[in-house]
């Protein structure tokens, strides 16, 4: 596709070959240095001492429990933010009301707040010296230094992802289709399930993929509220740090490579979604022409 686009370009709207090659080389060099090299290093260090040690590091009980906790935290945080994202996008994109831009800025806030600050706020609220800490202690409810705290911190850092994908998408789509469905007698929920959801599903998926990657990889915020109990409250990124501090570099990079693998799967899934969206758009254009 790209080649066609290029050949279609007339000579005046592109650069002379040597400029093109220089720029391309420069860009590829940047990508190689900044992106490929770190990625390669993770796998290289993990496999340096062979597959045996690599796999042993991954099936070690503490690593397994870290993987389990990481998956649990993401499995709770992502659906919560998914529901929120759809609700927020519906309210913001389909209606006009005052204070909308303030609301959007507030939704974005967790994205810009330092993860360390995010961890701190939960310590201030639920810590033994915090607002509700003493009450929680008396009732034997553990929030920080236990799974709920880790989930809360994860929910906070992944808060805007789905909403940020859906709001512009739903704004661009407008609400004519929904209005048509309503006039034809569909109920609100029917309209949502049959009309809106199919329209936004790829954008939704995109947001979920990004939120999931962040949820599984969060370090700063979770580090503050985890308590670092081995086999209990260590997520995979925290486990990487611990192994690294134990001079167990193979183990650290083995767990890191698992997270990097997840990153690659995320990217692949993302490209697939993008590719689908493009195809759908192209099909829609063809239909429109016909």
């Amino acid at each position: 596709m790209a080649t066609i686009a290029l050949t279609q370009r007339s000579i005046v709207t592109t650069e002379v070959p040597w400029v093109r090659y220089t720029l391309t080389t420069l860009a590829l060099l940047l990508i190689g240095l900044f992106l490929v090299l770190p990625l390669f290093t993770v796998f290289y260090e993990a496999l340096k001492k062979g597959w045996g040690l690599y796999l042993t590091a991954l099936v070690e009980p503490d690593a397994l429990s870290a993987i389990k906790l990481t998956l649990t935290a993401a499995a709770i945080a992502v659906p919560l933010n998914l529901v929120f994202g759809v609700a927020a996008a519906w309210a913001i994109a389909k209606f006009d009301f005052r204070g909308k831009s303030v609301l959007i800025t507030l939704i974005d806030l967790p994205f810009a707040v330092s993860p360390v600050v995010a961890g701190l706020i939960y310590v201030l609220m639920f810590g033994a010296q915090g607002w509700w800490g003493p009450w929680l202690m008396d009732h034997d409810i553990k929030v920080i230094f236990a799974i709920p705290g880790i989930v809360l911190a994860t929910v906070f850092v992944t808060f805007p992802f789905v909403a940020r994908e859906l709001i512009p998408l739903m704004e661009a789509q407008g609400s004519e289709e929904e209005q048509a469905a309503m006039t034809l007698g569909a109920s609100g929920w029917q309209t949502f399930w049959r009309v809106t959801l199919p329209n936004i599903k790829w954008g939704l998926l995109y947001g979920v993929i990004l939120a999931n990657a962040r949820a599984m990889g969060e370090f700063g915020a979770v580090s503050v509220v985890s308590g670092h109990i081995r086999g209990e409250t260590n997520t995979l990124p925290l486990h990487v740090e611990i192994l690294y501090n134990e001079y167990n570099f193979v183990g650290a990079f083995a767990c890191a490579s698992l997270l990097a693998l997840l990153a690659l799967v995320t990217l692949a899934a993302k490209s697939l979604v993008e590719w689908r969206t493009e195809q759908l758009a192209a099909a829609a254009r063809r239909d429109a022409v016909e």
Partner: peptide, 30 residues
């Protein structure tokens, strides 16, 4: 990425998002 064509462009385009997907601690030690 937009204007020129070269091999494995799609792959490289996807790779640009790596820093979003890679946990920061992993990036740090790497």
């Amino acid at each position: 990425l937009v204007r020129y064509s070269f091999p494995a462009k799609r792959f490289i385009d996807a790779l640009v998002d790596l820093p979003f997907a890679l946990p920061t601690a992993v990036a740090g030690i790497a």
